[in-house]
Structure formats: C-alpha cells, structure tokens
C-alpha cells in the first residue's frame, strides 16, 4: 500500500484517539470500516452472521489494544485488518473441530462460490498494483494456493486437497511462491 495512501486514511489518528479513551474515534472507525471488515471476515468464515460476530469481537480488541499500535509497525489499516483476520481464522479453527461432518457438507456446497471469491479478489486487484504485478509472475497453482490461504483462510491441508496435490508438495509450492513474491515486491 502506498505510503501516501496509508497516511491519508487517518486511521492512525483514530487509533491514537482510541488509546486516549475517545470512544467516538472507535465509532468513526466502525462507521467507515465495518462493512468492508465484515466482508473480509465473511470470505474466511463463509457466513454473514459469523462474520459480524468476528467484527464485534475485533472492535473490542481494537479498543483495548489501541495503545499497542505504533506506526513503525506498519499501517493502521493493516493492524486493524490483522485483528479481524486473526479472529476469523480462530473461529474457523474452532468450528472445524466442532462439526466436521457438517462443515464438509457445507464446504462441498459452497466450494464453487468460495473459489470464485478467491479468484475474484485477485481479478479485482488494481492492475497497476505491485501485488497484482508480482502475483501475475507466479505459476498459476502457486498463486492460487497463496490466494486461497490469504483470502479464504484455507489451511495447508485444505489447499492441498483442493489443488489435488500431496500435502508436502502444496506446502513447498506455497513456500516458494511466497519467497518469489517477497523478492518481486522488495
């Protein structure tokens, strides 16, 4: 994300205000960002009601942890999104254990939908963006594995299954894909 864009979104100032106990700042973040954050969470947990639950808990965390945010640790937006993403991934992990059978059935039903989400995120990336250009240089399967993990919250095992690869192969493809991506974006 461009530095100018990072500074211009003002989210860092809102986080500093939250750290000072300004509850209105939290509300302003909510008003601006809750819609997108819910959409980001929904890509991972696959259900709107669960996504809202994730966002609800994430805002409690944003409020109580705002004093930990520091600009030398990346953008305020990245920090906020990380809180939402972590909560979504944890919910997914907990759910996986609880109702595996049900989840598998639902997974099968939603499979096509989910892959659409993952691929559309890539297609919607700004054509001029660095990330887009660098993802473009990756071999198709590697790119897909990385997108499935980041956008859809898939685990190594799930990615291997969907891409019909042995687990070890999927892991090493993703690892190499990520290394190539880092190098390209450096």
């Amino acid at each position: 994300m461009a530095a100018a864009e990072m500074a211009a979104d003002g989210l860092d100032r809102e986080l500093f205000a939250c750290a000072r106990g300004d509850a209105l700042a939290l509300k302003r973040i909510f008003d601006r960002e809750a819609g997108r954050l819910t959409a980001v969470a929904e890509r991972i947990v696959k259900r709107r009601d669960l996504a809202e639950e994730v966002v609800q808990e994430a805002f409690i965390n944003i409020w109580t942890k705002a004093h930990q945010y520091s600009p030398d640790r990346g953008s305020a937006r990245g920090w906020i999104h990380a809180i939402v993403r972590n909560r979504a991934l944890n919910l997914l992990r907990d759910g996986r254990r609880e109702d595996l059978v049900d989840a598998e059935r639902l997974d099968a039903m939603r499979e096509a939908d989910q892959m659409d989400h993952v691929l559309s995120a890539f297609a919607a990336l700004d054509r001029d963006s660095r990330l887009r250009a660098c993802l473009d240089t990756l071999e198709e399967t590697r790119r897909r594995g990385i997108l499935m993990a980041y956008v859809g919250g898939y685990s190594h095992g799930e990615i291997a299954g969907r891409l019909r690869l042995p687990l070890g192969t999927a892991k090493s493809w993703i690892r190499r894909g990520l290394a190539a991506l880092r190098e390209c974006m450096a």
């Binding site: 994300m1 990072m6 809750a34 819609g35 997108r36 819910t38 959409a39 980001v40 929904e42 890509r43 709107r48 809202e52 966002v55 030398d72 640790r73 990346g74 953008s75 937006r77 990245g78 920090w79 999104h81 990380a82 993403r85 559309s120 995120a121 890539f122 919607a124 990336l125 700004d126 963006s129 990330l131 887009r132 997108l147 980041y150 956008v151 991506l181 880092r182 974006m185």
Partner: peptide
C-alpha cells in the same frame, strides 16, 4: 517489522472486498 510488512503487502487483497451492509 517483517510481520507488519507482510500485512501491508497483502492488504490490497482485503481492499477488493466490497463492503456489505451490517
């Protein structure tokens, strides 16, 4: 710092998510 950089590197993918009504 490496984690922060990785977050910001992938963030554009999140920004492609169309906001939904909550």
């Amino acid at each position: 710092r490496a984690v922060a950089a990785a977050r910001d590197r992938f963030l554009p993918l999140d920004m492609t998510a169309m906001p939904v009504p909550v």
